[in-house]
Design a binder for these strands. Structure first.
Length: 569
RNA sequence: CGGGGCGUAGCGCAGCCUGGUUAGCGCGCCUGCCUUGGGAGCAGGAGGUCGAGUGUUCGAAUCACUCCGCCCCGACCA
């Protein structure tokens, strides 16, 4: 492919509305263009990278025994009403009516459609197991699309759905996908972690997220330095603390703390450390106010609170709201005699005594004991895990990292098959519900994540397997001999089966180098002054800038070999 | 949805507060010369409903109101 005939509109300057690296670079490298908020066109090179990922995904899904199909994007509302999600899904589901006034929606995911297919066409246990997948554009009307392809409203996703006769078989399907996902992301050349996304309420872990490690990740994960435990921090369980040695505290004491409302200032005033103070955070959980008790030096993990309370909405309540409900200004709130629902972190329950607000302006209490002095309706793990906590699995030491979620697999069980009455007949003639699993990969996000993880100040640094082209050939200068040699080398590279972008443009060297770096093509071959002088061309690796001078024929052989080696990794 | 910011040429911006010639600058684009190993130089040129509407005014990119769009920060997810 000749650059002079390629649609590759690179930008010298940074687009104003792109903050994140991958977004900025994809725009600058001419990979994508925005149509409207969260909706992008994929230009030829952006599409090429996406196709590379898709190809790897297809190969590995097929290898794992899954079969590709393609389902509609427009879906009738009644299917969603059947599963109950038409109400539950919320505004992220884009709804509309067609000319016949039929309610419809754009598919954000395809459990309903696939379950409908299964119930109509899978009738016997002999038909199972089945795993069907598609690579398709999804639409989710995200509250807040951002970061280019990282969180678009329209995005390309591979989604797979498995159908099994029972739990054990479903687990086998699940493990196959887990293994396939590992292969996929490894083959893409990404540094990733598979993390637990749910902590085994059913006696095992049946949901994993696949995280590409990158500083700009939206999620934080914890991992163990001793064992293979890894989890999204939101879901990482904190080990229950050992209860205090002396469970019989002294009597409560009222202490004056004038104007001291923050943990730090209260502690300084009282001469204690934050781990001796318990803070009372008030949340609005759906429509109710709930107080959450937590050690002063800890942070609430809102997902855990949400799960404990079983609510859909959780947000810190405003000061006025809290005052209206309790008559106490925030900063002096405490668990003793508080008129709100009260839940406590397990750590608080394990303390023999602590300091807390007195529910009276300018006063705090000392020697409070949860069991003796407060009426907590629940004690649970409600705080965010820290690197100082022991590994929930083995007690080892933890590390933390930022990650981008590119894949998510989980066992669905019979939720959908029951709601939609999808059954098969088993060996004994019984009708039974399919045990399902579903498995997603954000294909377009994988490309963005790859760039977040692999770039420098000059541009993208693609891993070979997902690079839109593996080699960029530069012809520098007007010299006839150089042009001829470059043309020849181009033909040789093509003949060797190498995907090469041949920069044959009549441009100055600096510009060509800059574009080559920006595009992130793994190998650059330059035919220039050294060819005129010594008959050699330069091969330069984008990742580390390592370069060498070689005769053209040797260059072709070396490239072929290096590329193959990286593809087989 | 709440909070903050921005809409002026393909891209990045100035001009607006303090209304008043043909609305500017850099990059990119076109033509010519020149140049060719890290985004060259010179000369000439094309390109604008100043986001939209309404209003104030003799006069609006500039002031007011309304609407639309986009970006960033918080609650969701591939």
């Amino acid at each position: 492919m000749r650059y002079s005939q390629t649609f590759l509109p690179t930008l010298k300057e940074n687009p104003a509305d792109a903050e994140v690296v991958s977004h900025r670079l994809m725009l600058r490298a001419g990979f994508i263009r925005k149509l409207t908020a969260g909706i992008y066109s994929y230009l030829p090179f952006g599409l090429a990278a996406i196709r590379k990922v898709e190809q790897i995904v297809r190969e590995e899904m097929d290898r794992a025994g899954a079969q590709e199909l393609l389902m509609p994007m427009v879906q009738p509302a009644d299917l969603w009403q059947e599963s109950g999600r038409y109400e539950k899904y919320g505004p992220e589901l884009l709804r509309f009516v067609d000319r016949h006034q039929r309610e419809s929606c754009l598919g954000p995911t395809h459990e309903e459609v696939i379950t409908d297919i299964a119930r109509k066409s899978l009738h016997s246990y002999r038909d199972l197991p089945v795993n069907l997948y598609q690579v398709q554009t999804k639409f989710r009307d995200e509250v807040r699309p951002r970061f280019g392809l990282m969180r678009g409203r329209e995005f390309i996703m591979k989604d797979a759905y498995s159908f099994d006769v029972d739990d054990a078989a479903a687990e086998v399907s699940y493990m196959k996908m887990h293994a396939a996902y590992k292969r996929i992301f490894t083959r893409c050349g990404l540094d990733f972690r598979a993390v637990q996304a749910d902590s085994g309420a059913i006696g095992g872990s049946f949901s994993h997220e696949f995280m590409v490690l990158a500083a700009t990740g939206e999620d934080t994960i914890v991992y163990c330095r001793q064992c293979d435990y890894a989890a999204n921090t939101e879901k990482a369980l904190v080990r229950a603390p050992i209860p205090a040695a002396n469970p019989v505290p002294a009597e409560m004491v009222r202490l004056e703390t004038p104007g001291k409302r923050k943990v730090a200032t209260v502690c300084a005033h009282l001469g204690i450390t934050p781990d001796r103070l318990v803070k009372t955070m008030v949340y609005r959980a759906d429509d109710q106010l709930v107080a959450v008790l937590l050690r002063g030096d800890r942070e609430v993990e809102e997902v855990k609170v949400k799960n404990l309370l079983g609510v859909a909405d959780l947000a810190l309540a405003g000061e006025e709201e809290v005052f209206a409900a309790t008559g106490v200004a925030t900063g002096y709130l405490g668990p003793v005699g508080l008129s709100l629902r009260l839940v406590a972190d397990q750590e608080v329950a394990a303390m023999d005594s602590f300091h807390a607000g007195a529910n009276e302006k300018n006063f705090h209490l000392a020697n409070v004991n949860l069991a003796r002095d407060c009426r907590a309706e629940a004690v649970a793990d409600l705080r965010r895990i820290t690197v100082d906590d022991p590994c929930p699995a083995c007690g080892g030491s933890l590390g933390m990292a930022e990650g981008i979620e590119v894949g998510h697999i989980f066992k669905l069980g019979t939720g959908y098959s029951q709601a939609m009455n999808a059954t098969f007949q088993d060996r004994d003639g019984q009708q039974r519900h399919f045990v399902m699993g579903c498995y997603g990969i954000g294909v377009s996000r994988v490309v963005a994540a790859a760039i977040e993880q692999n770039h420098d100040d000059d541009g993208i640094i693609f891993p070979v397997p997902i690079a839109p082209r593996t080699v960029i050939l530069l012809a520098l200068g007007q010299d006839e001999g150089i042009a001829t040699a470059a043309d020849e080398l181009y033909q040789q590279l093509l003949a060797a089966g190498i995907e090469v972008l041949y920069d044959d443009r009549d441009e100055r060297p600096g510009l060509k180098f800059k574009d080559a770096d920006l595009l992130g093509i793994p190998y650059r071959v330059t035919v220039g002054k050294n060819f005129t002088a010594r008959g050699t061309v330069e091969i330069r690796r984008r990742r580390d800038g390592q370069s060498q001078e070689l005769a053209p024929a040797e260059a072709v052989a070396l490239l072929q070999q290096s590329i193959q080696a990286e593809l087989n990794r």
